[in-house]
Design a binder for these strands. Structure first.
Lengths: 141, 141
DNA sequence: ATTTGTGCAAATCGTTTGCATCTGA
DNA sequence: TCAGATGCAAACGATTTGCACAAAT
């Protein structure tokens, strides 16, 4: 809403991906992208949409997230448990995960662990390297 | 079966963890540990047990895996999707994951990516760093 | 008009739980 | 004996699916 350009380029990116720019996809896209880099689950995004009076079903949120993921507009992050997280930052970067809060954060580039790409086994190539730095609240003392 | 020592020390390790060395736990422990480092899901281990005529329910397999995990005899690996993987190698090491096959492998120590521990955010401490190297079959050509 | 997307509810999948029964110290 | 373990089936939570209805080109 705050920025016509954002909406226009989102529409264009959807079309390039062969996705019709529907009300729901535009609205969800705006929610995802208008506040910078974000990490969320399908359920979180759905609740946010509902709070914003965007009529959209959870099934459509899942569809949209997977379609956006396929179009490389966002990416999935493997954490664990049942929940799947999504990230609007598709560039190469790593994550902190605070287990007790179920919260994901980007590792700042300056703090980013240096990962030397290993030699993959014969016949295979590396598609991606995920680094998850697990955190817990420091016990005072 | 092949080695009395293995079974004896497993019994001991179970006792130390406050776990009674029951038929099922011993049998599952032997399955897990007798072939060196292994990666598996609860369901894989259950099927293997059934094939070996070890009477054990899937619920008990889950219980056992979590108890062993709590006792640091094995560890969980976050991959993604619903499935949880377990690893008999509890030392610090990283993994390859072949998505198309759902298969996990250890990254050989010599090939291990060098990860520089990042500075955690204020008030938090790092409990673990997971590195998952995603692979796909190389297309010939 | 035709194709694609959406919403609902039911179905699925991995995992967990409640509870009656069994087992090991 | 009896606390702890097991097995079954029902319960669960996240995600997916089938299908009738609605919206986009």
């Amino acid at each position: 809403m705050k920025d016509g350009m954002t909406e226009k380029s989102l529409t264009g990116r959807l079309r390039s991906a062969g996705l019709r720019p529907t009300k729901q996809r535009i609205a969800l896209g705006n929610l995802m992208f208008e506040h910078g880099d974000r990490h969320f689950t399908a359920e979180m995004l759905h609740e946010e949409a509902v709070r914003d009076n965007i009529p959209v079903s959870l099934a459509t949120v899942y569809n949209t997230l997977h379609q956006f993921s396929g179009a490389r507009l966002i990416r999935e992050i493997a954490v664990e448990g049942a929940k799947t997280y999504f990230d609007t930052n598709t560039s190469n970067h790593y994550h902190y995960f605070i287990e007790s809060e179920g919260r994901l954060m980007d590792v700042e580039a300056s703090e980013s662990p240096m990962v030397k790409t290993p030699e993959p086994p014969e016949g295979y190539e590396i598609t991606q390297i995920d680094v998850l730095v697990r955190l817990r609240r420091k016990t005072t003392g």
